[in-house]
Amino acid sequence: MVRAIFHTPSGERREIDARCGVSLMESAKAASVEGIDADCGGSMVCGTCHVHVSPEWLERLAPPDDMEAMILDCVPDPHPRARLSCQIVVTEEMDGIELTVPIAQR
């Protein structure tokens, strides 16, 4: 398990245990992180699991593929550090990753 820190739309700082080998979305849903709705269950069609990755962590992640980038163009409040949490697979190197759930997902 690694520690993932979510800043929620209501201003709460939530530290959760994220399982390696699964998506951040799955761990966030299991921990009931506010704003991670994941309406499509992680099939990358809804954008309701999008997060803003902190700058120091964004550069450590692989860039989004074309499909993810297309979905991110359609989310409310597009952001240059936006990612779909369903597309970020947790690794041990991600311990301490910080993400912000956009206010639009309140």
Rank of each mutant, 00 (worst) to 15 (best):
G35S: 04
G35M: 06
I36N: 03
I36L: 02
D37S: 14
D39E: 14
C40E: 05
C40P: 06
G41C: 07
G42W: 02
S43G: 11
S43F: 14
S43M: 14
S43Q: 14
M44W: 04
M44K: 08
V45D: 01
C46L: 03
C46R: 03
C46M: 01
C46A: 00
G47M: 03
G47P: 06
G47C: 03
G47I: 02
G47Q: 01
G47E: 07
T48R: 07
T48G: 07
T48C: 07
C49V: 06
C49P: 04
H50I: 08
H50L: 07
H50Y: 15
H50E: 09
H50T: 06
H50Q: 14
H50M: 09
V51C: 08
H52I: 15
H52Q: 15
H52E: 15
V53P: 00
V53E: 03
V53F: 08
V53N: 07
V53D: 03
S54Y: 15
S54E: 15
S54W: 14
S54N: 13
S54C: 13
S54H: 15
S54D: 15
P55H: 13
E56W: 10
W57N: 11
W57Y: 13
W57M: 11
L58W: 02
L58P: 07
R60K: 15
R60C: 12
R60G: 12
R60M: 14
R60A: 14
A62R: 13
A62I: 02
A62H: 06
A62W: 01
P63S: 01
P63Y: 00
P64E: 00
P64H: 02
D66L: 09
D66K: 01
M67N: 10
M67D: 13
M67P: 02
E68H: 02
E68T: 00
E68M: 01
A69I: 01
A69H: 03
M70P: 00
M70N: 09
I71K: 04
L72G: 04
L72P: 05
D73P: 05
D73C: 04
C74A: 14
C74T: 13
V75Y: 04
V75R: 07
V75T: 06
P76S: 11
P76F: 09
D77L: 10
D77E: 15
D77T: 13
D77F: 10
P78C: 08
P78H: 11
H79A: 10
H79D: 14
H79R: 08
H79W: 09
P80M: 12
P80F: 11
P80W: 11
P80C: 09
P80T: 11
P80A: 12
R81T: 15
R81A: 15
R81N: 15
R81G: 12
A82I: 10
A82L: 12
R83Y: 07
R83V: 05
R83E: 04
L84K: 06
L84F: 04
S85N: 12
S85M: 10
C86H: 12
C86S: 10
